[in-house]
């Protein structure tokens, strides 16, 4: 439990990074966890060279889903789309410090990455 609600996540929750909407964006998607109601929507501005120039997101849900999205949004700024596609569960663990999560909460941790991947498909 202490692993889940560390200072880093609680701080993200209070001061989410890249929260809001972009005036111009090239890619977007929305994701939700049906069983708990976590919701995220992301907007991405991606250059012709495939670099993520800017990102914004909005959402509602548990601390894990929202704080992870915040950390992830800052992490992928300036990355290429192929670098984002290559992100794994381990990346999320490194970003959040969450090394162990119950099977029922895994989807909360993953929602941001799943939503980002959806946006890149378009």
């Amino acid at each position: 439990m202490s692993d889940l609600y560390q200072e880093i996540l609680l701080s993200e929750l209070k001061h989410p990074q890249n929260h809001g909407e972009l005036p111009h964006f090239t890619h977007s998607s929305s994701g939700a966890n049906a069983s708990c109601g976590d919701q995220l929507s992301v907007q991405l501005l991606i250059t012709d060279a495939g670099v993520i120039e800017n990102i914004a997101w909005r959402g509602a849900g548990c601390a894990i889903s929202q704080a992870t999205m915040s950390l992830l949004s800052e992490h992928i700024k300036g990355a290429t789309t192929s670098q984002v596609q290559a992100l794994t569960d381990e990346t999320l663990s490194e970003l959040t410090g969450i090394t162990q999560i119950a099977i029922t909460r895994k989807k909360c941790l993953m929602l941001g990455l799943v939503t980002l991947r959806e946006a890149l498909k378009i």
Partner: peptide
């Protein structure tokens, strides 16, 4: 101010 899942997680602990 706290999502239901977070309430449940803390109660579980």
């Amino acid at each position: 101010g706290v999502h239901a899942h977070d309430v449940a997680q803390i109660l579980d602990s």
